[in-house]
Nucleic acid binder design. Structure first.
Length: 468
RNA sequence: GGAGCAGUGGCAGAGCGGCUUAAUGCGAUGGUCUUGAAAACCAUUGUACCGAAAGGUACCGGGGGUUCGAAUCCCUCCUGCUCCGCCA
């Protein structure tokens, strides 16, 4: 929700809203309605003061004086009722209109549409397409079972299986440890929320069509942990010493993906259900821009350590969501498509969301709205997708980051069978890269490469070693 | 799923439809006293909105209603607790 006072007084704020697509007429209507509302509020409160005084007077008077006074008070009450009705009408009109006004873009945000992003930095090598893409490999090796997923739940659902699951948990655990080191509190939030939570988090009514609803209970499945994390301090007044409050929320995310028919249908790039580790920060109003840079630096650190080639772009004003004043996208180079695709992003909402959530921080005099920010740490499905798609080695279709050092994992828990499987996943790719001491990884038997032969081109030397 | 009870300020806890701008206690803040502290005593003690200010309005879980007047009565929703049933 925008700041009406600022909208009236600060031309840059107003320009920012127009850059986000608000039309000038609507802004004028808002200011006009707000003017009307204030005038009417003054009238109503005056009448109410009179009515209160009259009632109090009745309480003080003798029984025989009362009937006349009660009648007089009844007249005041009628006037008050009329004035209140007008106020109510103006207020709802204003409230409805205000909710449609997006958060103004920050002045540093590039102008333009989807393609007018500004590239901030580019890291790593843009490799050429691998012989097999992620979907084929995942399916052939039994890591991603789309066919059975579809049979169970329909398109865009998959069973994630075997080593991919263990890689998921390893990724999440690794990233979670990192976030804890940055002062984030781990949270597993509710993923089924009430309608008012959806509204207050800013997802309803605009994105209602993207959300799964339950039939019996009027509950909604969240598309991101951002929603319940925004609810964590809803209606609260926070102690300044508690800020910044940082949360690392791990949750399953559900998205209807309405309007994306035929888009990204291969593999698990775009699915109805995936797990995600999400960062969410509440900060004081003066430090939120620093916090945005912190979130970005953490996202970059994750991509760096996963050794994924990526770039960071500042999203243009025309492509920002309604709530973001500024947003960075991190996009990983996807060899099979020959382009960058979004993997994580982070946004500063300033006080836009906090205003609707009524989340404030105590200040010297009274209180002020906090700022909220969010950023993706690990979108599991896409991380698996990219990790299995970025190798240059024709035989190593899928690689795991060197971070997941197999020896470290196996010493950490030698007896843990699950971890050992993950370490197998890693060690093969290391061996292919010529790491001399690396233990031998799991060899995928020839029968698998024969299966692959039927589906698509197979590298000449695939007989030697197909790797996960 | 069935039956019952409850929700009041930072916390605890009173509150008959009208001298409730919510008693009292604890806590917190300031002061007196003291070399310093404790104790005692005195005073202060919320938030939001409108307004230049004076002042006004709203807030006793949320929403609606009855009434000249609601923390108090009615409806509804939410939350918590107790008992019964069912399931792990």
């Amino acid at each position: 929700m925008i700041d009406l006072r600022k909208m009236r007084d600060d031309p840059a704020y107003r320009d920012g809203a127009i850059r986000k697509g608000a039309n000038a007429g609507a802004l004028d209507d808002v200011l006009d309605l707000e003017e009307q509302r204030r005038a009417q509020l003054l009238a109503v409160e005056g009448l109410r003061a009179d009515a209160n005084a009259a009632s109090k007077e009745i309480g003080r008077s003798n029984t025989d004086e009362r009937p006349a006074k009660i009648e007089a008070a009844g007249v005041l009450k009628a006037d008050l009722g009329d004035a209140e009705a007008v106020l109510e009408e103006v207020s709802t009109k204003l409230a409805d209109l205000v909710l449609t006004i997006p958060n103004p873009a920050d002045e540093s945000v590039p102008r333009g549409g989807e393609d007018d992003y500004e590239v901030i930095v580019e890291v790593g090598e843009q490799r050429s397409a691998p012989p097999l893409d992620h979907a084929e490999l995942g399916e052939a090796l039994g890591l991603v079972d789309q066919a059975r997923g579809a049979r169970t739940s329909g398109s865009r659902f998959a069973y994630i299986r075997g080593g991919a699951v263990q890689l998921e948990f390893a990724l999440v655990q690794w990233a979670l440890d990192k976030l804890v080191g940055y002062g984030f509190e781990p949270v597993v939030p509710p993923v089924l929320v009430r309608e008012d939570m959806m509204v207050d988090a800013g997802f309803f009514p605009t994105d209602r069509h993207q959300v799964y609803a339950t039939e019996e209970d009027e509950m909604f499945l969240v598309g991101t942990a951002e929603i319940p994390l925004a609810g964590l301090h809803r209606g609260e007044r926070l102690d300044p010493a508690a800020l910044p409050a940082r949360y690392a929320g791990f949750s399953t995310c559900f998205r209807r993906e309405a309007g994306t028919y035929g888009k990204d249908t291969r593999g698990i790039f775009r699915v109805h259900q995936f797990d995600k580790l999400e960062m969410f920060s509440y900060t004081g109003p003066d430090v939120s821009w620093d916090e945005l840079e912190l979130l970005l630096s953490i996202e970059r650190e994750i991509l760096d350590e996963l050794e994924l080639p990526y770039r960071v772009v500042a999203v243009a004003d025309g492509d920002l969501g309604a709530a973001a004043a500024k947003k960075y996208d991190c996009e990983v180079w996807l060899p099979s498509e020959g382009c960058y695709r979004e993997v994580t992003s982070c946004s500063n909402y300033l006080d836009y969301s906090a205003r609707r959530l009524d989340c404030r921080v105590r200040a010297n005099k009274g209180s002020e709205f906090v700022h909220t920010l969010n950023g993706t740490a690990i979108p599991v499905a896409r991380m698996l997708y990219f990790s299995s798609s970025t190798t240059s080695n024709p035989t190593a279709h899928c690689r795991s980051p060197t971070y997941f050092d197999p020896s470290a994992l196996s010493t950490a828990s030698n007896s843990n069978k699950n971890l050992r499987v993950v370490s197998d996943v890693v060690s093969v790719s290391e061996q292919l890269e010529g790491t001399p001491e690396a233990p031998l990884g799991r060899r995928v038997p020839v029968s698998v490469s024969e299966q692959l032969e039927g589906t698509r081109r197979v590298p000449a030397n695939s007989q030697q070693l197909l790797v996960l």
